[in-house]
Design a protein around this nucleic acid. Structure first.
Lengths: 159, 159
DNA sequence: CTGAAACTTCAAGTACACTTGAAGTCAAGC
DNA sequence: GCTTGACTTCAAGTGTACTTGAAGTTTCAG
């Protein structure tokens, strides 16, 4: 605890300590997920608090959130002051909810898959897993990128 | 069960019945995930079995597999004959394993998140969730796209 | 037989999350 | 004060999974 750590970190130090590439940090900054001050020579200097912010970003990505969603969540943090434990707690509590939801979705999928192991899926019409309507209705938050509900329902050659 | 269903489906019929766009079906076919016969006029005709194949593909995507991985899995199906219930069972059993793994990963993440709710994460160094090494070690199969372990560990300006 | 809907190919576009490369500037130890 | 590694910007590239559009062809109900 008596370790002397610099108050401001270069992008390289921040990358090393957060486990995220410098290119990713610049990208996050370009999206408004993190912020930096600049030296006279226009180099970035990150507050130590940024390390936690980056860690939160990576954790939220594991939860399946897009960077856009994460930015919105981080914007909910109080402006103008360093977020305190209650701020982070509110955030993690919110995300815990969506994580619970995702786990429940996957468990439901597993159950349907188990049912299919039993039935052998000889009857396409009666199989819950293979029923598209059912699948669409249950597509969880985490599956958005992976499958992605098409926004418009296809009208090929439709002009 | 006495419903008269065509033996061969057009791409439009296949799309309607599988809940997948025609463009996606052509894409799957271009990747070798599904196959078609052609009419004299070069239009696609899909076997009814393709409906199940497509359903399996969508289910596997929900499990977090890439189309490439799914194609490899489908290639494990016996060549030359229509897959029977045991073939599909083997497939779903394999995938159930990885699904179990993913659920376990997410539960572990949830537990760490719960720990952070308790601790308020005031101590960056001691927080399991926010520790990059820990996160990297636990990155599960499903998180691959979302976070994606960088293949080479950064050596910026390294020539 | 005809006309419209459905099909064809191929190239290019989209979205996400970055990475890479080029060309040049800054910071700091010796 | 100089060298070298770390930094800067900006444009373009990567990979996954598709979608869209243009231009043309096929199918089938009437």
């Amino acid at each position: 605890m008596t370790l002397a750590l610099p108050a401001r970190l270069t992008i390289g130090e921040t990358a090393a300590r957060s486990g995220v590439r410098t290119s990713a940090l610049r990208y996050y900054e370009s999206l408004g997920l993190i912020a930096s001050e600049r030296t006279a020579g226009d180099q970035r200097r990150y507050a130590r608090e940024t390390l936690r912010r980056v860690a939160v970003i990576r954790a939220a990505q594991l939860l399946g959130l897009t960077l856009r969603e994460i930015r919105l969540a981080l914007n909910e943090l109080p402006q103008g002051r360093t977020p305190d434990r209650h701020d982070w707690q509110r955030l993690s509590q919110t995300w815990r909810g969506s994580l619970d939801q995702r786990i429940a979705d996957l468990q439901a999928l597993r159950d349907r898959l188990s049912g299919c192991i039993g039935c052998g899926c000889l009857s396409l019409e009666s199989c819950a897993l293979f029923n598209p309507a059912d699948r669409a209705a249950r597509a969880g938050a985490g599956a958005r990128y992976l499958v992605g509900d098409p926004p418009n329902p296809e009208s090929e050659r439709g002009s």
